[in-house]
Design a binder for these strands. Structure first.
Length: 847
RNA sequence: GGGCGAUUAGCUCAGCGGGAGAGCGCUGCCUUCACACGGCAGAGGUCGCUGGUUCGAACCCAGCAUCGCCCACCA
């Protein structure tokens, strides 16, 4: 404790909870349509109600909160709209695992209704935890407007969207090869499959001829193909070779036998086959491979399905029926081997699809699903990205998204899950009706639910009331910005653009900020299984929410970054520094004179307003790291290190006023980033109004003062030169010296400890700092060391002169370099030449 | 197989055409009345490699190396 009665170190814990409650109590984050103000809206990417917030949420929360608080201070009616996502497949997975773990039951043991109820309850609990975490972060969201993808109005939006697309012919039902997850017993979309390299095997499979025409072209009694999934041979309906493959000309049209199932199939010709791969013969299993399905279509082959939804072999698999896919693979290979039908088995590294949610190996499988036709939806989205109506930071992601949209396949929107929005399609005796509720007696609803991203895709307008034409929607849509990690650019962002343009006739947001992914401290991805996750709440406890937020923004860029605790420490030190600056300013009387500002006063105001301008511009361009570096540098290195020191040593009548004004300005600039600590400091300073309601500092050209800037720049250099000299020579105490021209004499004298004298006789040190010279009187004993020092200085300045001369003597440089660069070199040459003469004169005098 | 990005001080990262920067760490001095989560002064980089463009390259271009990440139906 000090005389101010305020602790030296800022303690975030009590302060944070207190201010958040106060902001809420005063409705500081509430926003409603107001015609007299411009709207600014950010919709929070809804966290999944599956668990807790992670570092990505913390970073993105810090980004959004910073932008929305800044907009609020700038006088916008700023709405940050919160919400959570029911996360269909993810939540179902979590609940299913819990069920097995705690009760040893599956979802089928419970039945659909009971299971969905369990999901609902789990979501409820998880959701309240997440909301609490958002408050800890300081998120300035309007809690009155909290939305949930499973609340009644939202469900209505989802069903409306589905039905409209269905009626427009953009949603249709169709048999296709889909990505089937046997563990979830559901189809998933292309985007939910992760391909991983695995070490597998290529098995040689032999099919004996059954047409009695004798051996094949290679003299064998069989045709051989290579497959990574031998168990799928049970569903083979043909073999194919390339029509141009000379080796197999005679093979086309012959019949072979599929072992075990005893099916006779034909060898066909199809250009899809690559003669270079394996034997150049391919087996065709239309029900279990997308390419085979296409080949089957071309040749009018009937697919044979050999799998059950859970991945076991079905009745078409003869004696393998009932086995799991893995067991069947082993068994088929063994059986082939016994019958002499197994060819070469080679190790083979290839990519295998895994379920994004549960990790199970995906089975391409022929099923009937609901599809959303994408081309018509994608076109306007591509346009909006191309013509810049939607800007993306960084721009490279705009181009990536366009590319993705241009190559977009239809979207499988149905899932054979229980937790989610039930598809609003009803059947009765071959009749199919799209309706939110049962169209009448005897209708049965489609059992499937919608892809969770189908509902998320409507987020920016469904949360504002769509399909109703609400005032909110009219006022806040299109929203200002969407901030997200790039992982969900396609999964979510691209789809919001498509649905926004489709249903609202306008883009959903003007800007997209694609932020970094926060990696673990070792530079790898954080994952629970690796145990390298960092819990933001732990960080808040250790460093305070403001420090963590500052650290995250300081490190945020377009590049992924390994989380570094140092950045949180940096933030914490910064908060403490500001806290102590506040304590310092508090010692001054609140009423300051407004007249008689010194050069130093004018200088810090000039620096401040420029900082405010550039800082704001960085935030506008989502350059958070740059913005943090800038404000940190100003507050610490200019305001605290120089101006506060000047205020102590050489104050003017206006200094108390300027100190307070600049400190408050810094607090205002930083409030969006570090809301709690800055609010507390403003409060401690006696500000009546909540900082939340203060105006954001604007650039004021009348504060720019070139003369003061130049004077203080020179003064600071002169002071530093003396300090360096003191450190090197070990000279303490007061010195006598000549004040160089064009420096603030009072400041120079006070901070350097040099007492000004008119003229110096005898030994003296000649210090240089850029273009200025400081002379300090010395004792005779120091003459020797000064000569040494001067020699070094001379050699340094000589190098400078040579460098400039070299450049200027290059005719091409003078001719082709921009005029200001050339004149800049001339100026340097001049000042250094003058400096050199001075130094040489001194050394001559001493020798 | 395509595409994108990275490689800068011991560490984590900025800078992206005109003389190499920050934080942490390190060295020396300073317990001076805002702050030792501090002050002052320092040390420390042939900016991955090889070519090219340019009066001038860490920065632009090409190639190479290493490491990431996306996308793609080769059995």
């Amino acid at each position: 404790m000090s005389q101010t009665g305020i602790p030296k170190t800022y303690d975030p814990h009590a302060v944070e909870a207190r201010w958040y409650a106060e902001w809420e109590r005063r409705g500081a984050f509430e926003a409603d349509p107001r015609p007299d103000r411009r709207p600014y809206c950010i919709v929070l990417p809804p966290p999944n109600v599956t668990g807790a917030l992670h570092m990505g949420h913390a970073l993105n929360g810090a980004i959004q909160d910073t932008l929305v608080r800044r907009a609020r201070m700038k006088g916008y009616e700023a709405l940050w709209l919160p919400g959570v996502d029911h996360a269909s497949i993810a939540l179902q997975n979590v609940v299913e695992r819990k069920l097995v773990r705690e009760e040893g039951k599956t979802r089928w043991d419970l039945g659909r209704e009971e299971f969905v109820e369990r999901c609902r309850v789990f979501a409820e609990e998880s959701r309240s935890r997440i909301l609490g975490q958002l408050k800890r972060l300081g998120a300035s969201v309007d809690w009155r407007r909290l939305r949930y993808t499973m609340d009644e109005r939202y469900i209505d939006s989802v069903l409306t969207a589905f039905i409209r697309l269905y009626e427009a012919g953009l949603i249709y039902r169709g048999y296709r090869i889909t990505n089937w997850c046997p563990r979830d017993r559901s189809a998933i979309s292309d985007l939910e499959v992760n391909y991983e390299e695995v070490d597998g095997r290529l098995y040689g499979l032999r099919y004996t001829f059954v047409d009695g025409k004798g051996p094949g072209p290679d003299g064998n009694e069989y045709a051989q193909v290579f497959s990574t999934r031998p168990e799928t041979m049970l569903g083979d309906v043909a073999l194919v070779v390339n029509p141009d493959d000379e080796r197999y000309r005679e093979l086309v049209g012959r019949k072979v036998l599929v072992p075990f199932v005893e099916r006779e199939i034909e060898v066909l010709a199809d250009p899809y086959v690559d003669p270079e791969f394996g034997t150049g013969v391919l087996k065709v299993t239309p029900a279990h491979d997308p390419n085979d399905y296409e080949i089957g279509e071309r040749h009018g082959l009937e697919p044979v399905n050999v799998l059950n939804p859970d991945g076991t072999i079905n009745e078409n698999g003869a004696r393998f029926a009932g086995m799991s896919r893995e067991e069947a693979r082993t068994a088929v290979v063994e059986a082939l081997s016994e019958e002499g039908l197994l060819g070469e088995v080679r190790p083979y590294r290839h990519r295998v699809g895994h379920c994004d949610r549960c990790g199970a190996v995906i089975e391409p499988w022929l099923t009937e699903q609901w599809w959303c036709s994408m081309r018509e939806l994608a076109e306007p989205a591509i346009e909006a990205l191309k013509d810049g109506r939607i800007r993306v930071y960084p721009d490279s992601w705009r181009r990536e998204t366009i590319r993705w949209l241009e190559n977009l396949a239809d979207w499988n929107v149905s899932r054979q899950l229980w937790w989610g929005h039930r598809i609003p399609i009803w059947y009765r005796d071959g009749e199919v009706v799209a309706a939110k509720e049962s169209p009448g007696e005897g209708f049965e609803q489609d059992p499937d639910v919608l892809d969770t991203w189908f509902s998320s895709a409507l987020w920016p307008f469904a949360t504002l009331g769509w399909p109703e034409e609400t005032e909110d929607l009219a006022y806040f849509y299109p929203t200002a910005l969407l901030s997200t990690a790039r992982e969900i650019m396609y999964l979510w962002v691209a789809r919001m653009i498509m649905t926004g343009l489709r249903f609202m006739g306008d883009i959903p947001f003007e800007k997209v900020n694609v932020h970094s992914i926060v990696l673990a401290a070792d530079g790898t991805k954080m994952s629970k299984s690796k145990g390298n996750t960092i819990d933001p709440l732990d960080l808040f406890d250790r460093y305070g929410a403001d420090a963590v937020r500052f650290g995250l923004l300081y490190q945020s860029s377009t590049q992924d970054f390994a989380y570094s605790y140092e950045r949180a420490e940096l933030g914490r030190s910064f908060v403490t520094k500001l806290w102590n600056a506040t304590r310092f300013v508090l010692q001054y009387p609140q009423r300051g004179e407004s007249r008689e500002a010194s050069a130093a006063d004018r200088w810090i105001l000039s620096e401040f307003t420029r900082t405010a301008r550039d800082y704001d511009a960085f935030l506008e361009e989502c350059e958070f790291s740059e913005a943090m570096r800038l404000i940190y540098g100003f507050a610490w290195n200019q305001f605290a290190d120089w101006y506060i020191e000047i205020a102590k040593a050489a104050p003017s009548p206006a200094t108390p006023r300027v100190l307070r004004e600049v400190l408050l300005g810094i607090l205002r600039l930083l409030h969006p980033v570090m809301p709690f600590a800055t609010e507390e400091m403003a409060y401690v300073l006696g500000e009546q109004e909540l900082l939340v309601h203060h105006p954001f500092p604007e650039y004021d050209s009348t504060l720019e003062d070139e003369e003061a800037d130049r004077l203080l720049d020179r003064t600071k250099r002169a002071v530093s030169a003396v300090r360096s000299f003191r450190a090197e020579s070990g000279l303490d105490g007061e010195l006598e010296g000549r004040v160089p021209g064009e420096v603030d004499e009072a400041v120079f004298t006070a901070l350097s400890g040099v007492r000004p004298v008119r003229s110096l006789d005898g030994a003296r040190a000649t210090l240089t700092a850029g273009d200025l010279v400081v002379e300090i009187s010395l004792t005779e004993e120091m003459r020797r060391t000064e000569i040494e020092r001067l020699r070094k200085e001379i050699s340094r300045v000589e190098d400078e002169v040579r460098r400039a001369q070299g450049k200027l003597s290059n005719a091409k440089f003078v001719e082709r370099a921009p005029a200001e660069i050339v004149s800049g070199e001339r100026r340097k040459l001049e000042t250094n030449t003058r400096l050199l003469k001075t130094l040489e004169r001194r050394i001559e005098e001493y020798l």
